[in-house]
């Protein structure tokens, strides 16, 4: 008799709830337990690459800003290399860049801001090239399972047009929900990324 291959079942997700700051970003809850914090500034003086600021906002189905959530960010370095042993591209690591950050809102406008560098191009699944992008994961009260999305850069139009993940989104108009416009403010590049949980302009969320 042939037995079917049996996998364990993944543990069920539950909402992070309204008090997620206590555990994931204790600096926002006034808790000083930990020496290392996972913050929203990913650069130091030695980090290589163009300094950018990503200003994300999250809107609910009534277009009200979501203020109590948390966004995690994971990205490649300026040369397009992830700091992880699974990335075997022949590209240099940057010892001053982990590529990982977390942000909570820091103003009443509900802006989740990351100070980081613009990532380089990463090899795609089929040996092609992915346009520069950052990977985002969103949790909040009312979100039952963390939402995965990506942010691409509006000033990379040719690369975006060729990006295999963007192109896999059947509805061209929906690809636009992942592309953040660029502006200069006080000499610094700002990318504004509005995440819409519902509605006409609902952001594309991925099943990874």
């Amino acid at each position: 008799m042939i037995a079917p291959v049996k996998l364990l079942t993944e543990t069920a997700s539950q909402t992070a709830g309204p008090y997620l700051h206590i555990g994931l970003a204790p600096q926002y809850a006034g808790i000083t337990t930990f020496k290392t914090l996972f913050g929203s500034v990913l650069t130091d003086a030695n980090t290589r690459g163009e300094r950018i600021r990503i200003e994300a906002r999250i809107f609910d189905g009534l277009n009200t800003p979501v203020l109590d959530g948390l966004i995690e960010l994971w990205q490649a370095n300026a040369g397009g290399r992830y700091r992880h042993p699974g990335d075997r591209q022949n590209k240099a690591l940057d010892e001053s860049f982990t590529g990982y950050g977390r942000a909570c809102f820091d103003t009443e406008a509900g802006i989740y801001a990351f100070d980081t560098i613009k990532p380089g191009t990463v090899c795609g699944r089929l040996g092609d090239h992915m346009a520069p992008h950052v990977n985002l994961w969103i949790v909040a009260r009312g979100i039952n399972i963390g939402l995965h999305t990506r942010m691409y850069f509006a000033d990379e139009a040719p690369a975006n047009a060729a990006d295999p993940v963007l192109r896999s989104i059947e509805w061209e108009i929906r690809r636009q929900t992942l592309i953040a416009p660029r502006q200069e403010r006080d000499g610094k590049a700002i990318y504004s990324f509005d995440i819409h949980l519902q509605g006409e302009t609902e952001t594309v969320f991925f099943d990874l």
Partner: peptide, 21 residues
């Protein structure tokens, strides 16, 4: 009001998904 209403888009794994912090 915080639940996406459209289907998640399937994304075949790339380096962005198989790596992590």
């Amino acid at each position: 009001l915080r639940s996406p209403r459209r289907s998640l888009i399937p994304l075949a794994s790339t380096l962005s998904e198989i790596t992590g912090p």
